[in-house]
Amino acid sequence: MTTVEVLGCNATAPGRTGAASSYLVREEATAVLVDAGPGSLLSFARTHDLSELSGIVVTHLHADHSLDLMAWAYRWTFPDVLPRIPLYVPAEEMGRLERFDELFGIPTLPTMVSPIRSAFDVRGLELDSRTPVGIGSWTITPHRALHSVPSAALRFAGADGVVCFSSDTGPCRGVVDAATGADVFVCESTVLAADDDVIHGHGHLTPELAAGIASEAGARHLVLTHFARPEEAQEMGRIASRHFDGPVTVAREGATVSVDAR
């Protein structure tokens, strides 16, 4: 069975509604963390063991999607050093990722001089070539999203179906391609309404736009996430349902969405 567990769905730092963007996508023995927003490690550790994790893929390096990478790396290298797992980020952001270690490395602890490099086998996602990568049973194809920094919409293809994550994005061909025919499409719905600068400049979606992309892509199940104001999430679900014929789920921390067999 393939499942997507919501570890965090806020578009900001953790608050009363829980952690920022982070998801656990699982197929049989392969579990992959998608994004590592603030609070993601705590959310994961409540119900999972670190040994379950097969790899990490970060869609982009804005803090609400990546700030907990250092928390994960610290835990991976102290007090015990755990076996390295792959960590994928957009290839264009490899230099910025290296600065995490420069800022937070601990020279007096040999395993933590460069925590991220010690904990993870760091690899780049090529967004323009859409070159697939593999983690366990998953084939993961990145597509370039429309955002203010290099941002990867992710298509996870496995034996039981296809799961897509939009990343942060405005409307663009890359996200439609990533979500084409997806069984579950986890799509950002940051704000109820926005002007052109937010949508096409910075790159964010409203629930109506998220539903439009899901419809164009022929996705089967839309999961809305990445809420700037979590108190608006249920209203976003109602709006999306008016523009998308399939089931619409509003993400909440701890919720699990299953991929239904075709």
Rank of each mutant, 00 (worst) to 15 (best):
C164K: 00
R144H: 04
A63P: 03
I239G: 09
R96S: 11
D260A: 15
A219C: 09
G8I: 03
T30G: 06
R16E: 13
E208A: 15
A36C: 14
F156D: 08
H48S: 07
A157R: 15
L125F: 09
L97R: 04
R252L: 01
L41I: 05
V81C: 11
F44W: 14
D168Q: 11
R46I: 01
W138T: 09
R75G: 01
A29W: 02
A217H: 07
S167Y: 02
D197Y: 11
V81F: 08
T139Q: 13
S54K: 00
P110A: 14
G15T: 03
A240I: 05
V250M: 02
G174N: 03
R16W: 07
D183Q: 09
L33A: 10
L222E: 12
V6R: 07
L222I: 07
A219D: 10
E102C: 02
E102V: 08
G37E: 12
L61N: 11
E28Y: 04
H143A: 07
D168C: 11
L109M: 11
T3A: 09
T47P: 00
R46Q: 14
G15K: 01
P150S: 04
T190Q: 14
T139K: 13
H204S: 14
E98V: 08
F227M: 06
G18V: 05
F78Q: 08
D101S: 08
D183F: 09
R155I: 04
A11R: 03
H48Y: 07
V198F: 08
L42E: 15
S118R: 13
G246A: 04
E232L: 11
V175S: 05
D197P: 00
M112N: 06
R26N: 00
E235T: 14
F104I: 02
T17S: 11
G181D: 11
G254N: 01
M236R: 02
I239P: 07
R117C: 01
R130S: 15
V186R: 09
A157I: 00
I135P: 12
H48F: 07
S258M: 10
L154H: 07
A91M: 03
G158S: 14
E5C: 06
P14Q: 07
P115R: 10
H226W: 04
R46C: 06
R144F: 09
R46H: 12
R262A: 08
A19N: 12
V223Y: 04
F185A: 15
L224R: 00
C172D: 11
P79H: 02
R238H: 09
A71M: 10
D128S: 12
G15L: 01
V34T: 12
V6Y: 08
V58I: 14
A179K: 07
P132W: 04
E102D: 11
G254M: 02
A211L: 10
G37Q: 09
P38T: 08
T169D: 13
G181I: 04
F44V: 05
A178R: 02
L50Y: 09
E126P: 03
G246C: 05
A261I: 12
W138H: 10
L205A: 04
Y88R: 05
E28M: 03
S148E: 14
A153R: 00
A45S: 15
C187S: 15
A261K: 13
R96H: 10
A29N: 13
E216D: 13
R220G: 02
L61P: 12
A20W: 02
